[in-house]
Design a protein around this nucleic acid. Structure first.
Lengths: 108, 108
DNA sequence: CTTGATTTATTCTTTTTTGTAGAATATTGT
DNA sequence: ACAATATTCTACAAAAAAGAATAAATCAAG
């Protein structure tokens, strides 16, 4: 059991990108969204490993896309946040908000 | 240089607690501050391991407290954020802010 | 048709970095 | 010596990261 109850940094990023993409979220688009929204590049391996972990923790669910899309390429695996994933994300933000609250970081 | 450019989740927490405590930041007080501000408990080993890692990355600096404090116990090792640590923290927050921006998470 | 190139996307394997715990040890005051 | 306070050490689990390998579908030839 242990305790790793908190979302890792990258897990939060991936979850947020997934949420932003709504029903267009799948591995490749999530990677693109992260880069577009934040400028941060990530390997495709890192994305999927995180997605799988998050699904195993029930923070998101996946389903395969239609069998015959009108384009080349392997079928997509779509992801979406579960209620637990939404709660975890909100809890993470609250933790950070509390720590930032009242703090002023003066750039020396 | 390579890659680990981003702060981990717990690294951010520790850095923020250190910043909040200003010149009263040392291992034990940081652990206490995290718990008081967020309710999150952490082992003392986790705190120091992270503190050491953060110092190695030059995100914070440490110095030993005076040799003869008026109390029992081993001398304290005080920590404070470096300019790079401040920047890293601000960068982390900006990343999250960008991902949260315009997103509404509906609790189903 | 049937094969091969092309496109799009996911899976797999490996390694490094972070996160976590708790026992052990060190330093100082009484 | 003992109590109090704090840090260091040791070991291991989980998360992050990279990139090659593989898979599935479409399309253009021949």
């Amino acid at each position: 059991m242990s305790k790793g109850n908190y979302l890792g940094e990258f897990e939060q990023v991936v979850l947020l990108a997934t949420a932003r993409l709504a029903d267009e979220a799948y591995g490749m688009s999530i990677r693109r969204e992260i880069e577009e929204a934040t400028g941060r590049k990530s390997s495709i391996g890192a994305i999927y490993a995180t997605l799988d972990r998050l699904e195993a923790k029930t923070f998101l669910e996946s389903r395969m896309g239609e069998a015959t899309p009108k384009r080349g390429g392997r079928p997509k695996r779509y992801f979406r946040l579960s209620p637990a994933g939404t709660r975890a994300l909100l809890a993470s933000r609250r933790t950070m908000d509390r720590l930032w609250d009242g703090l002023e970081l003066e750039p020396e």
